[in-house]
Nucleic acid binder design. Sequence first.
DNA 1: TATGAATGAGAATTCATTCAT
DNA 2: GATGAATGAATTCTCATTCAT
Lengths: 183, 183, 183, 183
Amino acid sequence: MDAALVLFARHGFAGTSIRMLAEEAGVSQGLLYNYYEGKEELLHAIFERSIEEIQEDFADASEAPSPEEALTVLIRSAFDTVRARPDFWSLWYQLRAQPDVVAGLGERVGEWAETILANIEALLTGLGSPDPAVRARLVFATIDGAAQHYVLDPANYPLDRVGDELIELLARPNPPPHAEASP
Amino acid sequence: MDAALVLFARHGFAGTSIRMLAEEAGVSQGLLYNYYEGKEELLHAIFERSIEEIQEDFADASEAPSPEEALTVLIRSAFDTVRARPDFWSLWYQLRAQPDVVAGLGERVGEWAETILANIEALLTGLGSPDPAVRARLVFATIDGAAQHYVLDPANYPLDRVGDELIELLARPNPPPHAEASP
Amino acid sequence: MDAALVLFARHGFAGTSIRMLAEEAGVSQGLLYNYYEGKEELLHAIFERSIEEIQEDFADASEAPSPEEALTVLIRSAFDTVRARPDFWSLWYQLRAQPDVVAGLGERVGEWAETILANIEALLTGLGSPDPAVRARLVFATIDGAAQHYVLDPANYPLDRVGDELIELLARPNPPPHAEASP
Amino acid sequence: MDAALVLFARHGFAGTSIRMLAEEAGVSQGLLYNYYEGKEELLHAIFERSIEEIQEDFADASEAPSPEEALTVLIRSAFDTVRARPDFWSLWYQLRAQPDVVAGLGERVGEWAETILANIEALLTGLGSPDPAVRARLVFATIDGAAQHYVLDPANYPLDRVGDELIELLARPNPPPHAEASP
DNA sequence: TATGAATGAGAATTCATTCAT
DNA sequence: GATGAATGAATTCTCATTCAT
């Protein structure tokens, strides 16, 4: 699975052949079929495992004492999971636009975006954000974009500092509306 | 090329066969080879054309009177080009992590990220941003993330409102440092 | 036809495509079909023309005053025709072992070997050769072999001197049998 | 490889398709690619094997006690190898004029002509031949020509008798020059 | 006379997959 | 648990040929 994840991430799912997979893993092609029914099932297995791991990464976000800290934790753990599993995320970013592949991946996949978005929105509401729906999308877009930029160049991308900046900017309690009207 | 772009975006480059391309375009498979040496060259041609179109989309960003407005124009035109060519951007988002594909695409491709990032950074510097390098990455990440979220669901994603929010938040002149210290 | 002959000689008949032929001749592929019904017919035409030319090369062999001179003329004209049309002979040497190609070339082709062999045999009989049938094959083999060696390296092969040597050795009247038994 | 050699010899290299090869060998087309990277590599393998076999055929030529016998052995073993491997020689005679095919066949191929020629020349020098360079070419041409004529019609061509005649004529010690001047 | 768009058939090649061992 | 021989289908690509212009 590790070998497969690397190849899928690098050459795409359709661009990776069984021969490549077997070679990278150092086994015969036939052996793959003792463990997985085919390429799709292997992808499936990778997703099952990765989703569980990712859920662990995100597990403790809800225990934070304040929405502010919860948002901070959420952003940090998002970046942590990207750093821990760049190949998986790279693969996901490639595949998520292909409906036929996503469809074969089970229902849970693809829903996490909605879940995370809803979480962010709830937290922003808790923070008194004026337009939490739109701002949640903004935060989510930033997380997603930064994650990808990191994945494209892990050695140089300052993921932490971008994360801190994002938290600084958006995970702060909003001033009450009337404060804005002050001259 | 239009037919190919649609299929590439939907099924991925490797996941689209010559047969599919010919069928979608309503021609014989052989005819494709009269115009392109193969799938790769077709992809190449799509990129050449799209890059030119995109450069037009971004052409007038530098003529804005102030950094504030320039940044606004840049963000808006980024979202405009995504709205105008969602299939191309979807394809690019799928392919940009595959080094062998990107390598065959010419030098210009892949450089635009650096160019845009540098532009943003320069404008933020002009706006007096405290850490323009990091903040530029933040802005760019947000643009990229939002563009992808839009491309994944163009019918429902509130791209404009996210864009406005981003501009509101970040394309504003920064208050001089001592103002922050006020209680 | 000249262009085709060059390509056929260099890449073989089956190894030469219509596209190559059209390119080498500097015309469109379609135009070829205004003049020839197809690749085979083009080959046919090349053979028709070449056979006529070759028959002219050999025409005056029968007018020689003596078998000795006739054989000399025959050998010389054989080498002359090779020198004049190396591409054709190269092509023929490639194709003559392929029954399906030879079959499509008309009856005359392939018979010339028998004709030449019979001529040589008759002349050798005239010269009093002890075993004209075998010796005719020897002479013919030498002509054929030398012709090919010349065709493979026209710049360096001493075709004339090999011809002279062959004439010297074999196109001489044979001494009457009893002379051999002397001393 | 045996099946391929037969087909290559009969229909030419370019004229033999993978399908024909697979059918003749009684395997699927795909299987061929488990063993050879393509038609060219198969040809390559055939040549590698054949060259080794041929070298064995010629191995003992140098141990002959006299140049006369050595030349006899050389001619006989040349004809032996042709008789033993007519398909290979037929194929070689078809291909040797095609530079691109020969180029892909390794350095050894194509050199044997020079080697054999040099051998013959050395032996003829040993026999006191007046112009060994030219006469060696004559002998080699005869061998080559006769071999091809045999290959074109193995059932009827009197290869042995032609060989004997050649040996009789040319593999004899040359009389010292002054003897020729005797009346 | 000449072109180039177009095609269908076939060639070369890759692929996912099976199975006996 | 592991292999490698084997396959059939699909994929990429080439080819000879046609035809409207």
